[in-house]
Simulated scan of single mutants.
Amino acid sequence: MSAQLITKLPESGPDPITTDLPGWKVVSGTPSMKTWILHKAADGSMISGIWEAMPGTYHTTYDKYEFVHLISGRITITPDGGQPIEFNPGDAFAVEAGFTGTWVITEPVRKHFAIRLA
């Protein structure tokens, strides 16, 4: 049997990851996150899913490329040494491997993500 070449993702799934992801450290408030990995590429190169977070501030370090589509909520992302960028519902953006900076979550967030693993 060949691999499925197109997959419709559900809105979420059972059993989210509820711990803070590697590279994410709380610096203000009491934010929390949930991550649902809803699909893994057949060749192991990508994952995609849904991420939710409650208000607060994280400092994060990215070691992989991520594409994001913000479904709801508001975030201000500031690269270390850079200028803040605001993101609102409907915005899409990419974060390159090597990024370090803060995510200020001002309203509860729900986003689609796709992360390149290899």
Score class of each variant (00 low, 15 high):
1 M>G: 15
12 S>W: 10
15 D>E: 11
15 D>Q: 13
16 P>A: 08
19 T>M: 13
23 G>M: 08
36 W>H: 02
38 L>Q: 10
39 H>D: 10
39 H>F: 11
39 H>R: 13
39 H>E: 10
42 A>M: 11
47 I>E: 14
50 I>K: 07
50 I>T: 02
52 E>C: 07
54 M>N: 12
55 P>D: 05
56 G>R: 00
57 T>Y: 03
59 H>M: 04
60 T>V: 15
63 D>T: 11
64 K>I: 12
65 Y>P: 09
65 Y>C: 01
65 Y>W: 14
67 F>K: 09
69 H>R: 07
70 L>K: 13
71 I>H: 07
72 S>M: 03
73 G>L: 10
75 I>C: 03
76 T>P: 06
77 I>R: 13
78 T>F: 08
80 D>M: 02
83 Q>N: 15
87 F>D: 01
89 P>A: 10
90 G>Q: 12
90 G>K: 12
90 G>V: 08
91 D>W: 09
91 D>P: 09
92 A>V: 14
92 A>E: 11
95 V>P: 06
95 V>M: 15
96 E>I: 00
100 T>E: 07
100 T>I: 01
102 T>D: 07
103 W>C: 06
103 W>N: 10
104 V>Q: 14
105 I>N: 05
106 T>C: 05
107 E>Y: 02
108 P>F: 09
110 R>K: 14
114 A>H: 08
114 A>W: 10
117 L>W: 02
118 A>I: 15
